[in-house]
């Protein structure tokens, strides 16, 4: 047996040097600082919206439209905008999620990196870069001006779905690629055809991730103003039919109210912003709940 000190010399195993300890500390502090720095704008935005939004965040706000509310009147609400946003986002999801998911399945499971797959991938990237106002302009030019369709919530949903699609494709693609090849092979080895393997093994395994991706896409488009401006137009009244006539949306509502010169309108704008944030948060919560409810961890407990 040797004493520890001679063993240290002999094996070359040394304590951590002072220089490395210092560097470790410094980097740790820098990372914490960066974290706090990144948190400041987030926290201050949230705080501003909650503080200012609470002023008018009441039952009247949630259940009334702006119909017959004069320029200087207090009161009124965003019910028409909430309905509009929910319908527009739902319709946009109904269009974008199936197409986006099927595209991702094609890219991951069937494309094999072939020419078609690479072309699709390229155009998905291009779509990711389309400014939101351009998607609105496209729907305005094509759907409303060329085809002669009316301004409607559906036209807005079309514009939003153009923005949603690439986000859904990319996130679903990533999630599908995370499913290990072994699982697909296990299924093939049982004599299960490929399409059934995709539907029954791959998609359920990737479900939670895909749901999260879809929610991110929803959150991304729920706050879009520019495409709505050009496609759903404005209204102060409730319009329950997304296929006919101008509708409202929460981002539009905020934009509209914030531009009016009275305190009452500014308050309504803040409350509209708060409502929008709450809706997106609620949707996220629902996605997480579904994910948790389907997770093996829950079933195992």
């Amino acid at each position: 047996m040797t004493t520890p000190s001679t063993a240290t010399v002999r094996t070359g195993i040394r304590p951590i040097s002072v220089g490395r300890r210092v560097k470790d500390r410094v980097v740790q502090v820098l990372i914490c600082l960066a974290f706090v720095l990144a948190l400041i704008p987030l926290a201050s935005v949230l705080w501003m919206v909650v503080k200012n939004g609470m002023q008018r965040f009441d039952l009247e706000f949630l259940t009334h439209s702006m119909r017959n509310i004069g320029a200087r009147d207090v009161g009124g609400g965003a019910y028409h905008a909430i309905i509009g946003t929910l319908q527009q986002v739902l319709l946009a999801s109904l269009i974008a999620v199936p197409i986006g998911l099927l595209t991702a399945i094609y890219l991951v499971e069937y494309g094999n990196g072939g020419r078609l797959a690479r072309t699709i991938g390229f155009f998905v990237d291009v779509m990711t870069g389309v400014p939101s106002v351009v998607s609105g302009l496209f729907v305005l030019a094509f759907w409303i001006l060329v085809l002669g369709m009316p301004f409607s919530g559906f036209a807005g949903a079309l514009a939003l779905s153009i923005l949603m699609m690439p986000v859904v494709v990319r996130s679903a693609e990533e999630m599908l690629r995370l499913v290990p090849r072994e699982l697909r092979e296990a299924s093939y080895a049982l004599g299960v055809p490929k399409w059934r393997t995709v539907v029954k093994v791959v998609l359920p395994t990737a479900f939670t991730g895909i749901a999260t991706g879809v929610m991110l896409a929803v959150a991304r488009v729920a706050g879009e103003t520019a495409p709505l401006l050009l496609t759903v137009f404005f209204t102060d009244s409730i319009n329950n039919d997304p296929f006919n006539g101008p509708q409202m949306g929460l981002p539009l509502y905020v934009f509209d109210q914030a531009g009016r010169p009275t305190d009452a309108a500014i308050d309504r704008a803040w409350s509209g912003a708060l409502t929008l944030i709450l809706i997106v948060m609620l949707l996220n919560l629902v996605a997480r709940l579904i994910g948790w409810w389907r997770s093996p961890a829950r079933k195992g407990s």
């Binding site: 290990p180 296990a186 049982l190 059934r196 393997t197 093994v201 359920p204 479900f207 093996p296």
Partner: peptide
């Protein structure tokens, strides 16, 4: 049929469903 090097049960399925998978999926 085939058994692989690394055990690869379907992670979303119960023990019962794993064994039943071949018949059920077919």
């Amino acid at each position: 049929g085939m058994v692989f090097q690394r055990p690869n049960p379907f992670p979303t399925m119960s023990i019962f469903d794993n064994v039943a998978a071949g018949l059920r999926l077919n």
